[in-house]
Write a protein that binds this DNA or RNA. Structure first.
Length: 328
DNA sequence: AAGGCACCCAACCGCCGCGTG
DNA sequence: GCACGCGGCGGTTGGGTGCCT
């Protein structure tokens, strides 16, 4: 099949995010096929690394970030990935683009202004910087205290990234009976002996699942983002975990009333994209198993039923291991 | 209104380093 | 030591958009 190129469609993003959240990143070249994507592995990797993975921010570079980029670029040159490593949430591609479209231009202006001033340009320093495109911008002294605060915040974010790097939860199997939970904070809900389905209104104990038709999108749609929140429920009648794939949508609608006043409406929507399907939780346990057991399988998890042992489950401990963090 | 132009940025391409057999 | 495959990186491209004439 011919590989698709160009802009990523929303449904392709859905597929990639869903796949990585369930199975993690195991091989970029094989992944597109397993995820049902007609994309190259490189394209998938790029899309994930630059746009889809958690904690990515786009646009609106702060003054502190700009200063940091200038400073690091002076020190490191065009090593965008090294610069990005110092700016949590920013990708090398974003920084590179921002540099090429904004900062470099500003730098040139600053450089010419300096030249015109006829001021001391020590030795061939400016010439060297200009040829390398690395003329440093002066860092305002007044920003030093702000920088210190920013650094602290960034360190916190970095710490969050590290601690979220591997999600691991152990639970006694029996304690899960009759309950539904998600990996995000383990939101446990009693189901009174019924199999939970988040869209069944009588199960909506916390009011988290407004039906789609009650959401008013009549205003100008400012943005509509989404992320998947996997919610498992354990069906103890059939001794199966069920894995209804959910999409947790965040939306924001800006509306203008008769007085030309803008008001904002925001909220959340849960939506199930596919039929609820039975899925032994072992599918995820399999991620922790020996790589060699996957050999020969067209898909690393297609043979997950081999390690599904209900006897062991009903008396043992459930352990969830994820290669990738769940979104906070 | 239409064409030309510059700019932005998402995505592609080619190269390189590293790990593995 | 060598070949190969994969992932990462930086340079570059090209489509979309907005501004100017």
């Amino acid at each position: 099949m011919a590989l698709r190129k160009g802009k990523w469609r929303p449904e392709e993003d859905h597929k990639l995010i869903c796949y990585i959240r369930r199975y993690g990143i195991w091989n970029w070249n094989e992944m597109p096929r397993a995820a049902g994507l007609s994309r190259s592995g490189k394209s998938c990797r790029l899309r994930w690394m630059n746009y889809l993975r958690p904690f990515i921010r786009h646009g609106n570079f702060s003054k502190e970030e700009e200063d940091t980029i200038f400073k690091l670029h002076e020190k490191l040159g065009n090593r965008w990935s090294a610069i990005a490593a110092k700016l949590p949430g920013r990708t090398d591609n974003d920084i590179k683009n921002y540099w090429n479209s904004n900062l470099r231009k500003r730098l040139r202006n600053t450089a010419s202004a300096t030249k015109l001033d006829g001021l001391q340009t020590s030795g061939g320093q400016l010439k060297k910087h200009l040829s390398e495109g690395t003329v440093p911008k002066e860092i305002p002294k007044s920003s030093s205290s702000n920088m210190a605060n920013k650094t602290d915040i960034n360190q916190d974010v970095a710490h969050q990234n590290i601690t979220a790097g591997l999600s691991k939860v152990s639970l006694d199997f029996k304690s899960l009976q009759g309950q539904s939970f998600s990996m995000e904070g383990l939101h446990i809900r009693e189901d009174n002996g019924k199999i939970l389905h988040p869209f069944a209104s009588d199960d909506d104990l916390l009011g988290f699942f407004p039906p789609m038709q009650n959401i008013d999108f009549s205003g100008e749609l400012q943005y509509l983002t989404w992320h998947e929140e996997p919610v498992y429920s354990y069906n103890y009648q059939d001794n199966l975990f069920e894995y209804p794939t959910l999409w947790y949508d965040e939306y924001r609608v800006i509306e203008e009333n008769n007085n030309n006043e803008l008001s904002e409406l925001s909220g959340e929507v849960f939506q199930s994209l596919w039929e609820q399907q039975s899925c032994p939780i072992m599918e995820d346990l399999y991620t922790a198993k020996d790589e060699s057991e996957r050999e020969g399988a067209g898909h690393p998890f297609e043979d997950f039923s081999a390690c599904y042992d209900s006897n062991q489950l009903s008396s043992g401990e459930i352990q969830f291991l994820w290669d990738y963090p769940f979104f906070l």
